[in-house]
Amino acid sequence: MTLVSLSSEQLIMPLIGGGVIGVAVSLLLLLIGRVFGVSGILGGALFPVKGDTDWRLAAILGFLAAGLVMAQLMPATMAAETPSEIWVYCLAGLLVGFGTQLGSGCTSGHGVCGISRLSPRSIIATLCFMSSGIATVALVRALGGIP
């Protein structure tokens, strides 16, 4: 293993961004009493339950709006190209969609909200997706997929 060299800005920005995320999930909990799990919000938006859909659609619009604004203000933060081909993104998307529904959460619901309240389910889930993510990148690297 080698460590990439990081400037102080490259360390401070993730910490600030993380703090902003912490405030955002706290705001949703304080205002409407919901856990900010993005995969759960997406699942409920695609399969609407009466009376429980509007806030999910509003949250998805909020994400899209944030993307539009950040692409204008700080374009360097938005989806830089990676060497992977389209089919890799299609496979990845399918696995992320299916896996997060089966596992009842993703990086936000389990990783941030669940760990913050020390939920045993979320701690196990986070260990699982971190481990399989690391193993997957190691495999891709071993197969020559990472330059």
Binding site: G99, G103, S132
Partner: peptide, 10 residues
């Protein structure tokens, strides 16, 4: 589910 999600994430 979490293991599958991690593969897609990676």
């Amino acid at each position: 589910g979490s293991l599958i999600f991690g593969v897609g994430w990676g």
